[in-house]
Simulated assay, not measured.
Amino acid sequence: MRLRLRLFEFEDLPWFPTVIRAGMMDYLRFMISALGTYRPIAPLLAEGLRRTSQTTVLELGAGAGGGTETVWRALEAQGMSGIRITLTDLYPQPAAWADIAERTQGRIGHESASVNALAVPSHLPGFRTIFSAFHHFPPEAAEALLRDAVRAGTGIGVFEGAGKHWLELLLACTVLPVAQLLLTPFFRPFRLSRLVFTYLLPIIPLCTIWDGSVSLLRMYSTHELLNLAHSADPAGLFEWQAGKKHHWWGPQVTYLIGWPKK
């Protein structure tokens, strides 16, 4: 799919109800974690951490932290013991993050204050990552996000849990909504509001269908990702690579990763 449309997503709107956004993020976290969406990029991230001698991953736009535990465990399997992850977002999700912190004995922590990914505070170090969220940024903002990482001299990895294919768009409109209706009662932590706005007033699944479809249409291709990286780093201070990683069972992850040259 070469088409890229700059449509809106509900979760980006400042006035969008927090309870609905949280319900959508809970679903995304559950599905990404259950499917191990980002497990294939663990070797790439491990290489970035080794190249930059980092022991902390700073996750930008973390949402509800979907897939973060999977990535952390995959990094440990890559021999990266002792790695810590800090979750941040413009719209923090402290309740969801506290649940993750408890399950990982504090190895995955969070920043409670709102964090703008285009201007990350200096007191938040680490190899920067952004999962399933880079498409939210229009080109100017996406370039600024990468430029801020270059300016800080830290590595950065951009990962989208799709390969941008028409089949994925079809799944987002058909199979995945059915899965959401079947699995919602099993999401943790439990929220009564999630049940109300899924079954009585199905606002969460309807907004999820829209945002999931638009996400695919807004995704950058690997060529566009590299162009953004080179524009953000005109002096060539970073080494950049972009591509796609495959799961053994089919799905793809589109990525851009870069770190300072030695």
Rank of each mutant, 00 (worst) to 15 (best):
L171C: 11
A141Q: 15
P177S: 12
R29Y: 03
L124E: 02
T208A: 12
P121D: 07
L28M: 14
R128K: 14
V71G: 04
R2K: 10
F134G: 05
Y220L: 00
L201G: 03
L226H: 11
P185S: 06
P121W: 13
G67H: 10
L181N: 09
L192K: 05
V150T: 06
V178F: 14
L195S: 11
A232M: 08
R128W: 03
L228Y: 12
H135Q: 09
V178R: 14
E59C: 09
V57G: 09
V175I: 15
E59P: 01
A232P: 01
A179F: 15
L192V: 15
A119D: 12
E69P: 00
L237Q: 15
F8A: 05
V253F: 03
H123T: 10
G157P: 02
I203Q: 01
A242S: 15
S215T: 10
F8I: 00
L217R: 08
G79L: 07
D211M: 08
G157Q: 06
T68Y: 00
G66V: 05
W240V: 08
T70A: 12
E102T: 12
L28C: 05
V57K: 11
V175E: 14
S231M: 10
G212D: 11
A242M: 05
F127D: 06
L5C: 06
V57L: 14
D89N: 08
H247M: 00
W97C: 06
L201F: 08
L60R: 04
L195A: 13
V178I: 15
F134P: 02
L90Y: 14
V150L: 07
D89Q: 05
D148Q: 07
L58G: 07
F159E: 04
S221L: 04
L226W: 09
T88Y: 03
A162Y: 13
Q180M: 15
R188P: 01
E140Q: 14
T18G: 15
L256I: 02
P138Q: 09
G79R: 07
D99S: 15
R73A: 03
Y38P: 02
L171V: 14
A34W: 14
W240L: 06
